[in-house]
């Protein structure tokens, strides 16, 4: 399928916070509680539409365990967006966010859009991290924030798409040189040519993708 842009996403966060389930919910619209743990990295992809443009999200779902950090770091390269996930029922996964963020800042490109996701919000009765704490952390670190549930699908679609919308806006604003794929963006067939996209932000100017 043709797309105007392809965005590379990476999902990071402690083991067991539900990264793979978020991905599966987003790509397959289903929740699979029984799911083999991720070794290394798994891939998912889905087409979305933003501003009437087909955009392909290629999503890298990484292993969360600390031991694999060194290899996970190699996956940041060329990611346009990251979902940083913690589990609202496990405080320690929230406590580790700073170290994840540090990795991301260090190994991803500076313009990577990061979405902080407090997952498992369906388990409100076991909540160990308040929404406000999540919001506060996101605000302090310049992240977009949502609480979501891979099980109920609440906010899953929104999380992925609003991240994409933010990236898209950055393209429109000329933050990215889309011809440089190290930003995690590929211009697809019928996409926007030119070195830095349309600065005027007009959608019609981009043209091309007639889906």
């Amino acid at each position: 399928m043709s797309y105007a842009y392809l965005f590379k996403y990476i999902i990071i966060g402690d083991t067991g916070v539900g990264k793979s389930c978020l991905l599966l919910q987003f790509t397959d619209k289903r929740f699979q509680p029984v799911h083999d743990l991720t070794i290394g990295v798994e891939f998912g992809a889905r087409m979305i539409t933003i501003d009437n443009k087909p955009i392909k999200l290629q999503i890298w779902d990484t292993a969360g365990q600390e031991s694999f950090r060194s290899i996970t770091r190699s996956y940041y390269r060329g990611a346009a967006g990251a979902l940083l996930v913690y589990d609202i029922t496990r405080r320690e996964t929230f406590n580790h966010l700073a170290s994840w963020l540090e990795d991301a800042r260090q190994h991803a490109n500076a313009n990577m859009t990061i979405m902080l996701i407090g997952n498992k919000c369906d388990l409100a009765h076991r909540r160990a991290v308040s929404t406000e704490e999540g919001e506060q952390f996101a605000k302090e670190h310049g992240l977009i924030f949502m609480e979501a549930s891979a099980k109920t699908a609440q906010n899953v679609e929104e999380a992925f798409i609003s991240t994409a919308a933010t990236i898209y806006k950055k393209i429109q604003d000329g933050v990215f040189d889309v011809s440089n794929e190290s930003y995690g963006i590929k211009v697809g067939y019928g996409g926007i040519p030119g070195p830095s996209g349309g600065r005027d932000g007009s959608a019609s100017q981009a043209g091309g993708c007639c889906s």
Binding site: T15, G16, V34, H35, D36, L37, Q65, E92
Partner: peptide, 22 residues
């Protein structure tokens, strides 16, 4: 506690599609 928690999380995510573990 952490070690046990981690293993508990992982054993239920290991070969659960095999009938021996499902």
């Amino acid at each position: 506690r952490e070690r046990k928690g981690l293993i508990e999380k992982d054993v239920v995510r290991t070969d659960r599609s095999a009938s021996f573990y499902d």
